[in-house]
Amino acid sequence: MITFQVKKAENCFVDAQTWEYQISCRNEQLLHQLGQLGELSCKMNLRRPIFMLCMNDGVRVKGTLTGSLMRASFPTEQWKTAKETFEQTLSALTVEGEEN
């Protein structure tokens, strides 16, 4: 089970709903499971490689592979529902080798 701290990240746009998640493992430890939630792409050529995930409900998630911080941007419409669903999904993920 993944635990996390969450905080809103503001930008220029009043309707933006981007939240930062500090999770209890490295992002790369969740990649396989994240890949089942939507379209996952990685940029391995960057100084610190990143992943970008477009989930089926329009949520966009990104972060460095070796880091433990991910940013999730929720669709403006119904962002609260999307955030709640994302957090439930995130909590239910398991680090490889960890028992449920």
Binding site: L46, R47, R48, P49, I50, K62, G63, T64, G67, R71
Partner: peptide
């Protein structure tokens, strides 16, 4: 901006 910060 996020990639610049996170990766570089």
């Amino acid at each position: 901006g996020d990639v610049f910060f996170d990766s570089y």
